Amino acid sequence: MPREQLQRKPEEEFWSDDAAEELESSQEEASEEDAVRVLASVLPLSARVSSLLFVSSKPLSSEAIAKATKTDVETVEHVLEQLSELYQNETHGFSLREINGSWQFRTAPEAAETIKRLVTPKAKRLSRAAAETLAVVAYKQPVQKADIEAIRGVDALPTLKTLVDAKLIRIVGREDSVGQPALYGTTKQFLERFGLKDLAQLPSIREITELENDPGEVGEAGVSTVTSDGTDEASSESFTDDEA
């Protein structure tokens, strides 16, 4: 047999495509795990959790944070509680708040005036009709259109459509009566916008209706909620309607 036929083939020719992909995948996973271990040894978990919360424009769940940090949920929740207590100190310009089961940094109420000098609210604002209707839905939910109109004394349909489009309210069911009218309730976005952990933390009706007087202020005591990326979350959207 010719010597050329006795020579070994290059090693890569003995690998099937599937085997090669499996090897590459395992190497990538090992590399990622090594990087996480190195990072964990240098940067504490609390610092990594804070970093995630800082860069996120939306509230983060403990599950999402656990996945990103490759840590169990129970440990992450413990760290979140510790951070929340840490930033409750009045010397900080922000706090860590639990909002509808997720977490987000929120600016301190006392800093609202200072923030507004840097972050200018958009001109459009929540109208009186929308603010009043939102207040009725928030405190009476689930509530039907007829009940809202009985309280406000005007047609509520245009305003309800505005609030539904803004994702502040939604249809949560149907009344078990003639015609089965729609029942309205607030949304997850409503809780996020007002910085509420749940509906039990609803602000007073006065605070909600104050939206019409200051377009950039939403949240506890009408405070502008500025996210960690420097944007005014409360004024990032505009809501108006044609109702007088």
Rank of each mutant, 00 (worst) to 15 (best):
A221C: 05
V79S: 01
R48C: 09
K140M: 07
E220W: 06
S25I: 03
D72Q: 09
R170Y: 00
V42Q: 08
I65H: 06
G173P: 08
R3G: 00
G179Q: 05
T71K: 05
T107C: 05
K161L: 03
E207P: 01
Y139R: 10
V79Y: 02
P215G: 08
S177Y: 02
K145S: 11
V73C: 07
V76E: 01
E113D: 15
S204L: 06
A135H: 01
V172M: 00
D18G: 12
E237G: 03
E32W: 01
V76H: 05
P181G: 06
T107Y: 08
E98G: 03
Y184T: 08
E192C: 01
S224A: 15
E237P: 00
Y139L: 04
A131E: 08
P142L: 09
L53F: 04
S236Q: 14
T114H: 03
E33V: 14
E13N: 05
F54E: 06
R3I: 12
K116N: 13
L83H: 07
A35V: 07
V164A: 06
R3D: 01
R37D: 13
A156T: 02
Q7D: 02
A150V: 02
R8W: 09
G93M: 01
L23H: 15
W15K: 10
R48P: 05
A66L: 12
E13Q: 12
R125D: 03
K197L: 01
D72V: 13
A111Q: 06
K161I: 09
L191I: 11
F94Y: 15
E237R: 08
R97H: 08
E13W: 12
D72N: 15
S224L: 04
K140V: 03
L43I: 15
Q88G: 15
T91I: 05
K116R: 10
D229V: 13
V178F: 15
S50I: 03
P181W: 12
D241L: 08
W103V: 05
G216V: 11
E237H: 10
L211E: 08
D147M: 07
T114M: 06
P59H: 06
F105Q: 05
F94V: 03
D165T: 09
S177P: 00
P121L: 10
E237A: 05
E21R: 15
L23G: 04
G230S: 13
G219T: 08
T69N: 03
E217A: 08
A166M: 01
S238P: 00
A40T: 14
E149F: 10
P44W: 08
R117N: 15
G179R: 07
T209Y: 03
L52D: 02
I169G: 02
L163T: 02
D18V: 04
T187D: 09
R106G: 00
R152T: 06
T71Q: 11
A40F: 03
A20W: 14
S177L: 14
E237S: 07
S56V: 07
F190W: 01
S236Y: 12
T69P: 07
Q180W: 10
K167I: 00
E207V: 14
R193G: 00
